[in-house]
Nucleic acid binder design. Structure first.
Length: 559
DNA sequence: GCCGTTTTCGGCCCGACTGTTTTCAGTCG
């Protein structure tokens, strides 16, 4: 079993225990262990071989035994036992916004419902409102929650799909029958939600490639085999298709299978078939059409063909441009690591700086810092910086935006910091006008550098809160406030459309990982892809700048 | 169920909002 699969089982155990109203701390222990396993920076099987499962934070004797059992037998007796009491379909209901463990318990026990499909029927039959503590409003909210889930059925977050696709491609490339290959489709375009993994490979022997593909260890089932393709499902029900093509047709097909449908139909009109074969690169075909190379992320028919014709495509930002990460948590609030460990991990990535931006006091659940702990943290950071070579830890905060648009800390506290990110973590349901006013008030605060995850959306889970974005962008531009592209693949907030608008407004962007674990620093790539889809260049993004230029920019805000 | 810079036992993450209620329970961050 993989790290993610084991983490999933541990979370499910916690969920079942919670439905069964077990000891809260025991439940929390399982969740903490699951979180640690999920964020491990190496394959858990390696740890197992070195007999180091017990070294994982939050994994003690009991959980260690269960993990080892899963690694040995691909199953866990304790978990199977729990599932016989609370079926997996019941756990699925927990994904519906507004439904928690208590509600699931009542729905399961009193109505015998064990799947979302049955729940839909119960909502239609107006049965939910008959349950204790539930009414018409709750029933309506459940219905809305299910509808939101359904909007995205079958779509996977890029954070799940991209690593799976990369690993799959890596495997395929070890086949002696495959000359070259690439991830294609919406993953190559960096879309935040994708419906499947598409991989294109060039080969002279399709039959052998099909056999080689079938042998991939993570394939759960093969659903369709054609002469030049094989499709099926990997773990987590992620669908895949491997498309085979003769080597002479590879680059033409690479463009064909990468672009969106509108892009493809526009680009391939009027290209004679004989020009498509025997290309040496994608650029060759673009160039023959009188176009500059169009990066995959832009191939959506949103003006890129016209702009490429004029030779005016922006030089898009890439990962190597990033010089630091301006939104990083530590164990001082809800992060898992020490400041020095996050810094070391960032330095390993080649960064020049990170900003430690822990939560502020209102976010009690996250162990938000009060004034005293914030200054204690600053002293720790100063000390670390004294001994640092070619690296700088910036003193920051992710300060909570309160309901009325005031901040969790007074100006004299904020102005002493290097970076101030202001974020909303409460009152998501304010109406559009009030929510907009709330954000505008923050933007006008001279100590605020960055607005974190602007709309609060969670892909596949929660829509962003209501905001008048044009007013927000206007104010951000006027007040020199930076907007964050939160690189967490669940957020990618601001989205690509808003990102593209910021260029016209002259607003600067920070692409931040919002890391809570060392491993999360690597989430930066999703932010980069999102920024590329928003046509952003390195100069649009402040964390591509050198430390001095960055600090001068942040300081200027306060003057 | 995990953990220990006074601890191997007794702590461990709280508070606002919502919807159901007439004083509170459940969800969420």
């Amino acid at each position: 079993m993989t790290n993610h699969e084991i983490a999933r089982v541990l979370v499910n155990i916690a969920d079942i225990l919670e439905i069964q109203e077990e000891n809260l701390f025991k439940i929390r222990a399982y969740r903490k262990a699951a979180d640690s396993v999920y964020h491990l920076d190496e394959d858990i099987r390696n740890l197992y071989q070195k007999d180091r499962i017990g070294d994982i934070p939050g994994v003690g004797k009991a959980v260690k035994a269960k993990i080892e059992e899963m690694l040995e037998k691909s199953s866990c007796e304790y978990y199977e036992g729990l599932l016989s009491q609370v079926p997996a379909g019941v756990l699925e209901m927990l994904t519906i916004p507004g439904i928690g463990h208590k509600t699931v318990k009542i729905i399961y026990e009193q109505l015998g419902i064990t799947s979302i499909a049955e729940l839909v029927q119960a909502v239609n039959d107006k049965k939910i409102r008959t349950l204790p503590g539930m009414g018409e409003k709750s029933e309506y909210n459940i219905q809305k929650g299910i509808e939101l889930l359904k909007e995205n059925t079958g779509k996977f977050n890029l954070g799940l799909a991209l690593p799976l696709a990369e690993e799959f491609l890596e495997y395929l490339m070890t086949s002696p029958d495959i000359e070259c290959g690439s991830i294609v489709g919406s993953i190559r375009r960096g879309k935040p939600l994708v419906s499947d993994i598409d991989i294109l490979v060039a080969s002279h022997n399709f039959a052998r490639v099909i056999e080689y593909t079938r042998a991939y260890k993570y394939i759960k089932k093969v659903t369709d085999v054609k002469e030049d393709s094989i499709s099926g499902e990997l773990g987590d029900s992620v669908k895949f298709e491997v498309i085979m093509v003769a080597p002479r047709d590879y680059y033409y097909k690479l463009i064909w299978t990468t672009g969106s449908k509108p892009f493809r139909s526009k680009f391939f009109t009027n290209i004679p078939e004989q020009e498509l074969s025997g290309l040496a690169s994608e650029s060759e075909l673009f160039s023959r059409q009188g176009l500059k190379y169009i990066p995959p992320e832009l191939r959506e028919d949103r003006g890129e063909l016209e702009t490429a014709k004029e030779g005016n495509l922006p030089q898009l930002i890439s990962q190597s441009d990033i010089k630091g990460d301006l939104h990083v948590h530590s164990e001082w609030s809800d992060g898992a690591e020490k400041i020095q460990d996050m810094a070391a991990a960032a330095q390993k990535l080649g960064y020049q700086y990170i900003a430690i931006t822990d939560h502020s006091k209102s976010l009690t659940i996250s162990g938000g810092l009060n004034e005293e702990r914030l200054s204690a943290q600053s002293r720790v950071i100063n000390a670390l910086n004294e001994n640092a070579k070619d690296f700088c830890i910036l003193r920051g905060i992710e300060v909570d935006i309160l309901k009325d648009g005031t901040l969790d800390f007074t100006d004299d506290i904020l102005e002493r910091l290097d970076v101030v990110i202001a974020s909303i973590h409460s009152n998501f349901k304010l109406d559009k006008e009030l929510q907009t006013e709330r954000v505008l008030k923050v933007i006008k605060n001279k100590n605020v550098n960055i607005i974190g995850h602007l709309t609060g959306r969670l892909l596949n889970r929660r829509k962003g809160y209501e905001l008048d974005l044009d007013k927000v962008l206007e104010a951000a531009a006027k007040n020199n406030v930076v907007l964050e592209i939160n690189a967490h693949p669940d957020r990618l907030d601001i989205d690509e459309h808003v990102a593209r608008k910021t260029r016209d407004y002259g607003i600067k962007i920070a692409i931040n990982s919002d890391a809570h674990h060392k491993e999360d620093l690597n989430l930066m790539i999703y932010g980069i892809l999102n920024a590329r889809r928003g046509w952003l260049t390195p100069d649009d993004v402040i964390n591509t700048w050198d430390k001095d230029k960055l600090l001068e920019f942040l300081q200027k805000k306060k003057d």
